[in-house]
Every structure is written in structure tokens, then in C-alpha cells.
């Protein structure tokens, strides 16, 4: 049974002054609140975040820049470990954060599909089973056996999109809805995204596009400075939003 449960989830990290001979080499905070002064500063990226999702839920994450949307997604995925509270994610989870990650310019499109597949944790059988579909969907034709540096930006984007959307996740985490290509491909891409979204048990989607969230999501979680400002049914939230306007 797929489910996500977050209880009082808190993520604080220390802005360590890196030992360095140069001044001001502090890593940039990912967002959230900076607390403390002087040598020990903390970034409170998430604070007391609680929510629960069951199979069939589509959660829209909203909030301004630096509110903690991406941090929450990355914590659910396991890149960040919460410093407080508990998070329990059950189900095969895939994330679409940076779909261009790991593509190599010097390698052919086909080789890139294999590499990307390995990084995603696919077996050889899964890679070869999905290969034809990915190649066909990307519409790259003979270019698939050319090094990627010979691709136009649109072609590279189509390949990245085709690989990313051939996942079959039970839980899908997305930082913005993805699309690619010229208008014709965009229509195809939309259809493919909808298909993947329909198959997934749970979706968590961070976006600024409220129209999109309205169409896809049944629940909404609004973050503000790392805290939950609102969590509830999407219909209710967006209805309220309309009245405000």
C-alpha cells in the first residue's frame, strides 16, 4: 500500500563557516529562515510539517520562493535527512527534479538512455524493454546513434523528457510540471505526463501554476518559511482563493 506520512517534520542545518583562507565562503542556504548570528547560524528549512497521503492522492505544494517546497520534496525523496520528526514513505518513489542530470554530451543518445537507466536503478531487461519506446517517443530517428553534442537543444530536451517519463513510479515527486519541445511535441508530452500521473499511486507536485494544480491535485499544502500554512482539499482552497480575488 503506498502512503506518505510526515509527522512534525523538521529540517535544520547549520550554516557552517567552511574552513577556508578566503572570506565569505558560506554555502548558500536552500531557503527557509536563517537564525542566530556570528559563528553559528542555522537555517530552518522545514519546521513542524505534518501531513498524510494515501493511494490516489495528488498533492499540490505551493508557496513563494524559498518557502521550502523543494526542500520538502528532497526530504521525501531521501536526499535530505530530517533533523526532527519522522517521515515514512511507502512505495517505489521516483523524482523528476532535474531531468537533464547525468546526460553526457560525448555519448550517443542510445548510450545515454542506458546510463540514465542504470542511474535510475533499472535492470538490463528494463532498459532494453523501454529502449524502443523511448527512442520512438523522442522522435530522434537516426540521431539516436549520434553523440548528444550534435543535438539541438530541443532534441536533447525531448530525449531527456522521454527517458524521465518512462518511469513507472508508485510515488512521483515533481518540482514543476515538465514539458519539452515544439508545440506539436508539447501536446504529446502533456498526454504522456497525464498518463504517467494517472498510473502513479501518489503524486506530490510543487508548482507556482495554480491552474495546473487545480486540474491535477485533490489536496493542497501551502508552505511559508518552512511551516505549513494550510493543508486540505484542493477544491476548498482554490474556491477560497477565487473569492479573495
Amino acid at each position: 500500500m503506498v502512503s506518505i506520512r510526515a509527522e512534525n517534520l523538521t529540517l535544520t542545518y547549520r550554516l557552517r563557516r567552511r574552513l577556508s583562507l578566503a572570506r565569505n565562503t558560506m554555502p548558500l542556504p536552500h531557503g527557509g529562515r536563517i537564525e542566530g548570528t556570528g559563528r553559528t547560524q542555522h537555517v530552518r528549512a522545514l519546521e513542524g510539517v505534518s501531513f498524510a497521503l494515501e493511494a490516489g492522492d495528488r498533492l499540490g505544494l505551493i508557496g513563494g520562493n524559498g518557502a521550502g517546497k523543494t526542500t520538502l520534496l528532497k526530504t521525501l525523496y531521501g536526499i535530505f535527512e530530517p533533523t526532527g520528526g519522522a517521515v515514512d514513505v511507502r512505495g517505489r518513489t521516483d523524482a523528476l527534479f532535474n531531468i537533464n542530470l547525468g546526460f553526457r554530451r560525448e555519448a550517443t543518445g542510445r548510450r545515454n538512455i542506458v546510463l540514465r537507466g542504470l542511474i535510475n536503478g533499472w535492470t538490463d531487461e528494463q532498459i532494453s524493454a523501454r529502449m524502443d519506446d523511448i527512442v520512438a517517443f523522442s522522435e530522434l530517428g537516426d540521431f539516436i546513434d549520434m553523440p548528444m553534442k550534435a543535438y539541438s537543444q530541443g532534441m536533447a530536451a525531448r530525449l531527456a523528457f522521454s527517458v524521465a517519463t518512462s518511469l513507472e513510479p508508485e510515488i512521483l515527486l515533481m518540482d514543476e510540471w515538465i514539458g519539452a519541445g515544439d508545440p506539436e511535441f508539447q501536446a504529446k508530452a502533456r498526454k504522456r505526463m497525464n498518463e504517467m500521473a494517472e498510473k502513479a499511486g501518489i503524486i506530490v507536485l510543487a508548482s507556482h501554476n495554480h491552474q495546473l494544480l487545480r486540474r491535477i491535485c485533490n489536496k493542497v499544502l501551502k508552505l511559508d518559511h518552512g511551516k505549513v500554512e494550510h493543508f486540505g482539499p484542493a477544491e476548498e482552497y482554490f474556491a477560497g482563493e477565487k473569492e479573495d480575488q
Partner: peptide, 9 residues
């Protein structure tokens, strides 16, 4: 960096 921040490898 981009792999460490983008995957759980």
C-alpha cells in the same frame, strides 16, 4: 554536486 543534490545514490 549536481548528482549528490539530485539523486539518492
Amino acid at each position: 554536486e549536481s548528482f549528490i543534490k539530485g539523486t539518492t545514490l
